[in-house]
Write a protein that binds this DNA or RNA. Structure first.
Ligand code: ZN
Ligand code: ZN
Ligand code: ZN
Ligand code: ZN
Lengths: 133, 133
DNA sequence: TACAATTATGTAATGTTATTACATATGTTG
DNA sequence: CAACATATGTAATAACATTACATAATTGTA
């Protein structure tokens, strides 16, 4: 009941956990956080994550095997192209952004070779301004 | 003895397997392929992979949890910036490329925010020209 | 050569991430 | 209600990766 309707109970619980977190969470960490809400098995988490990914409400960070709430929930964040992430290796903070030029360059490359893109991952691992200081 | 010197026996075996493969391989698949060469445990593979990554002879594909031989081995492929991959979801074929403009755009973004990049992942999953036809 | 230091290897056990299979429940539609 | 689709609960297993500890090979140097 904390977020957007059209979500089932489990989906809403998982999304809530991700929204309240300031760093990406693995499926098993989410599971632990939801034990008190009746979660018992990984599949309960993975099923909710799958639906939330479909709806564009969360993202999977491939280089971390972890998940974050979309930083632009509600709007067209993911409808205007590929999303990129800058991920701090020290504090775990994630910045989500979008760059049209990058999108276009990658689209040009694939188009020139007849490659049909389905999903693009851009993840920059490093140190955020605070942690690098 | 099949490839570049300065490699140990295990490193050379693992690199050989990756070079002969036309698709990315997981660590456990590599292990299976090297049973006849005395490999018994995952760690033998992971240790060799770590060293090969350090030397820039292979790449890890984060979205697949798998590894490929560098397409530009020998030269400065990885010294001239971030490498990107187009990965076919149907046949597994991987194309490795580099785009200066993409690099610069991402560098501009991070620099503007004081983020210090350490490793950047760019992976485009989709269908190669052959498979999309 | 002898020795110490470093690097590489072998093996077992364990930890982490993700899926398959099957049963039950809930909601929607005609 | 019946039929269908969607969501959930649970157990077991598969796939990916690391820790811990012991041994061997290599390298540098007194
Ligand atoms: Zn988003
Ligand atoms: Zn940080
Ligand atoms: Zn390369
Ligand atoms: Zn293909």
């Amino acid at each position: 009941m904390t977020s957007t309707p059209t979500l089932t109970k489990n989906q809403d619980l998982v999304l809530g956990v991700l929204k309240r977190s300031d760093a990406p969470l693995s499926a098993y960490v989410i599971l632990d956080k939801l034990r008190d809400n009746g979660f018992r098995a990984p599949l309960q988490v993975y099923r909710a994550l799958d639906k939330l990914l479909e709806k564009g409400l969360i993202h999977r960070l491939e280089s971390l095997n972890a998940f974050v709430a979309c930083a632009h929930s509600g709007e067209s964040c993911c409808s205007h192209g590929t999303v990129a992430f800058a991920i701090c290796n020290a504090c775990g903070h994630v910045m989500e952004f979008h760059d049209h030029t990058v999108d276009h360059r990658l689209a040009d490359w694939t188009k020139a070779r007849g490659f049909k893109p389905e999903k693009t991952t851009i993840e920059i691992r490093g140190l955020c301004a605070s942690c690098a200081a």
